[in-house]
Design a protein around this nucleic acid. Structure first.
Lengths: 333, 333
DNA sequence: CTGAAAGCGCTAACAC
DNA sequence: GTGTTAGCGCTTTCAG
């Protein structure tokens, strides 16, 4: 059926090992013989069998990306995917993608094949949700080099620097002269970034001698708008918002517009988000942009280091956010 | 280094093939022996080597997903990924993801390994951009079962039914009593869906004895808003819009709000989009939702059929959009 | 310069 | 019931 080295050997009148050598640019063969073999290979449409090669070489030439099953949220940020794919491409590695069941739906004890078999040279684990303890144990036992993304671990982990980002977001507004700045977070994920961004924001506020304040914890768009409206209706209403993300900015913006407050003239907003940055009406949000692509890239770099030196655990890497200047911030009126 | 069947054989005092048989629940061995072998396997932490198994079996247990490199747009719709991943999971297949260079950046003639080597049992090709002719040729020559997504081919292809969706979007508005309905499309992708959605819309308009009208072809958010504003400022301004997608709805909505037109009271909008549906202010867009997950699922089903019966080319599959009733449509005032 | 021999980890067929 | 033999496609080593 398929074209093997053996067929090329027969076709070109050479031995199997010779063909292998020539196809891999090894050995000291006459140019004439090389050409003959290469011609046969091309003519027959030869494609090396990766599995056989892996078997022989003892490596797979592939790494796996484990993502959690989350019906709602974006499970695989495209920037990160791009970063990973280009990073792997440079090293001639393939990417295998597997969904990891999260804590809730692990009832039936399903374990993905990637953890029960040996089929990749390393693991990239995008830890956005709650992976069952059992899975984490399995990953440990697997003894395959692993790098975690978006987790908060001492070693072998790549994460965005949310504290720094929170601080810089607040500092941007403080530098413009804002004093009453509130942190709004309507996400309900429980991810550590929620707290970290607040911590950074609060640190900047403290340094400026100002009180920090955090809003959120309300479910449903209507109730979020109502809460935002209450905030903006206060006597000493805030002049600026640090918003956890798009889902938090929307209720705030809608409430503001509804109350006749203009953005950015009457209310400034900095928020966090992925690429590409989003708009509010015709205005680009001033955004602390998650360095997704770079995270993917760095994760691959770390993983390949761990693959070549399996014993060396690596210090985790914090990646700073990009700051994207939009049109949703102005000095307070 | 790693635990092989051979080590289990030594540890349990059995032969290599016997261990293999027992691990694969084959042969007629005594329960006692089975237990002995399984115990050894567990104790040593055995993980079957997938590459060796593939070599022996002549199949890879994996399919590849080819996506195009597009820095801007979402290259891998998450719904589709989910559909593919769950579909493959049911058949115990792995997913390999590869980026395919698009027409423009193929100058250097880079060919991904997935096309030069034999390393998957089939290909899923998400054809959103312009893949170089040379790549398509290579895919043909590869002789590996392939299914195309989002392309418009007679065979071996899964696509959403854009014509039907365009028609249904218009019909929804017509049924509410709208007569002046305009199709707005600010996408610049040149994807066939642009035209197909219009064709469906136009067909519904024609059937109602009304004139179809198409707006778009303008670049930059400001100019789009300006054009939208002009449209809504006309004497016989439209009372409803069928919008190609979020990027087209935004300028329209912004212009409407700015001109004091309320949505949906003064202007109704139906648009096309992925999941989850998006909001305009506090209102969910009435949306024709791309059946991403189902497309992924069906594509896998078709691909596995082609893998088991390689000669049988399959008729392409059109998948109907889901209709999601939002709050952006109302009868004309 | 080239080919014979050996082996990667695994499985199918067939002895005994 | 279990072990022997053979072989998947490929690469490495080494003899000639």
């Amino acid at each position: 059926m398929s074209v093997t080295i053996k067929k090329i050997a027969e076709h070109s009148g050479m031995s199997v090992p010779s063909v292998s050598q020539i196809l891999n640019h090894k050995g000291l063969y006459r140019q004439e013989t090389r050409d003959k073999v290469l011609a046969s290979a091309r003519k027959l449409g030869y494609r090396p069998n990766a599995a056989a090669r892996s078997t022989r070489m003892g490596e797979f030439g592939a790494v796996a990306l484990l993502i959690s099953t989350d019906p709602q949220r974006s499970t695989l940020p495209n920037g990160m995917l791009r970063g990973i794919l280009t990073g792997l491409g440079d090293r001639d590695l393939q990417l295998q993608v597997t969904m990891l069941p999260d804590e809730k739906l692990t009832s039936e004890g399903f374990v993905p094949r990637i953890l029960t078999q040996s089929m990749s040279d390393g693991l990239l684990i995008n830890y956005t949700d709650h992976i069952p303890e059992k899975m984490i144990e399995l990953i440990r036992e697997h003894h395959v080099p692993s790098i975690w993304l978006n987790a908060r671990l001492e070693r072998d982990c790549v994460m965005p620097d949310d504290i720094d980002a929170g601080r810089r977001a607040a500092e941007h507004l403080l530098a413009m002269g804002h004093r009453r700045i509130v942190y709004v977070d309507y996400s309900a994920s429980g991810h550590y970034s929620s707290d970290d961004r607040y911590v950074g924001y609060a640190a900047a506020m403290a340094q400026a001698g100002l009180a920090a304040r955090r809003l959120g914890g309300v479910d449903g768009l209507d109730r979020r708008i109502a809460q935002s409206r209450a905030l903006l209706g206060e006597a000493d209403r805030p002049t600026a918002i640090v918003s956890y993300g798009g889902g938090s900015s929307n209720p705030i913006c809608h409430a503001a517009v509804d109350m006749g407050l203009r953005i950015p003239d009457d209310l400034s907003i900095v928020h966090f988000g992925g690429r590409p940055a989003v708009h509010f009406a015709d205005k680009l949000f001033t955004t602390m942009t998650v360095p997704e692509e770079q995270m993917g890239h760095e994760a691959v770099a770390m993983l390949t280091r761990r693959i070549t030196q399996p014993s060396n655990r690596l210090d985790s890497l914090s990646i700073t956010y990009d700051f994207e200047l939009g049109a949703t911030c102005a000095p307070p009126s």
